[in-house]
Design a binder for these strands. Structure first.
Lengths: 216, 216
DNA sequence: TGTACATCAGTGAACGCGCGTTCACTGATGTAC
DNA sequence: TGTACATCAGTGAACGCGCGTTCACTGATGTAC
């Protein structure tokens, strides 16, 4: 959860936008939008995707409860903004994972490991993208993210089998396995070994290989 | 969600306990405990595991908001009671699935399919057992359920590999895959085919076989 | 069989709480002249 | 360089809401005599 800040701020933190003069700590907060998003991520990391409240985020950011409405239309808009960041980060990570090899089986194994890693290292973002209960019809930009992921992975799976249905089936099974492993790791069902993230990444990769190489 | 009622009532619904005289519809509800549990299941099925409120369950059962406290210590106690039912039903289903064959690989494949099926057919119970956010230290009887499942499955996995670590690893990977597939099916990511439950059961079973038969 | 009584599952009103959202406002900022 | 002004990110008080929980109570039930 400490790491999540780096992602959130990477775009428009004051430090990386030197043309903007540093605002003195007067009445204006200066970067309240980011401060609220960070507070929200910390809340989700601590309490789960339904543990976020606007009021508590305001308390942590040190502003009044009315302040967020200068930056977000409502509570859901803040959540949707974070979900977008989550999808963006997923895309970065999965693209990188997939480009680590030319062997499609290893590409999918890398994807599976990266999936587990993202869920663990950016737990709050992961939780928001999967179970914040956002109304996707009100935030259609979010619904597109799944299709983008499919567009990246389907060509890879198609190199393993030319049957499109079988290729899709392959992806679904690999992604599901990674998803389940990530959740089990989150819930601590696997035991709290110090190295349980690497072990779980390896399990995800091995399961992906097993699925790809299955004979029948 | 309509099905869930049959499970909930199977124990002490008035119809199956003829020695107790039917209470006339007077001031006493008669079977409020079950009515509240049914209402809670319906709420969870409709709104997710965090959508349950005692007040709404009371409204649906047609009683005042104070009535539940004659049957449950508090809100969490009702949820914990349902979680127990969920674990009991899981045990029944998984035991039956596992006894359908003598081949350990097929036993695990059947377990994986049964896992997906339970999550779909008893969605509310499944959601409660996995993400109701119950404090397990306050409800220790719930924490034991996972170990009971492990006790059933570990001997089977041990017939595939004598290495206990490898056997545990096998189980974790198979259960995770089934879990992930069940969640993807719930979320409608797989498309809303009429036969998506059977298709997902088959995917779970095939993934289990792939994991069991993996060479490396 | 009839009556007195203890039990106890329900009521309904009230409580304090935290939530999301709205509103008129304030005062520091940066800009035009 | 100095002054008047528009902008706009913040305040703080208030709102209505639904929640979980408590409380004294009521009245139907089943039982003891």
């Amino acid at each position: 959860m400490a790491e999540s800040g780096s992602l959130v701020n990477s775009v428009n933190l004051t430090a990386v936008t030197p043309p903007v003069k540093r605002r003195p700590s007067g009445q204006h907060h200066g970067d309240l939008r980011n401060a609220l998003e960070e507070a929200a991520l910390a809340l989700v990391a601590e309490r789960g995707p339904h543990g976020f409240t606007l009021a508590e985020a305001c308390r942590r950011a040190g502003v009044s409860v009315a302040a967020p409405y200068k930056h977000f239309a409502d509570r859901d808009a803040l959540l949707a903004s974070l979900a977008e960041k989550g999808y963006r980060e997923q895309h970065l990570r999965f693209s990188a994972a997939v480009s680590s090899s030319d062997d499609p089986a290893e590409q999918l194994a890398s994807f599976a490991a990266a999936y587990v890693r993202f869920a663990t290292e950016e737990r709050a973002l992961f939780d928001i993208t999967f179970s914040a209960g956002l109304d996707k019809s009100r935030h259609p930009e979010l619904a597109a993210a799944g299709n983008a992921l499919l567009g990246t992975l389907l060509p890879i799976a198609s190199r393993i089998t030319s049957d499109q249905t079988a290729a899709f089936d392959l992806l679904v099974r690999i992604a599901s396995a990674a998803h389940g492993l990530a959740l089990f790791l989150q819930q601590g069902i696997l035991g709290a070994d110090q190295d349980s993230l690497p072990a779980t990444e390896e399990r995800a990769a091995r399961t992906a290989r097993a699925i790809v190489h299955q004979k029948s």
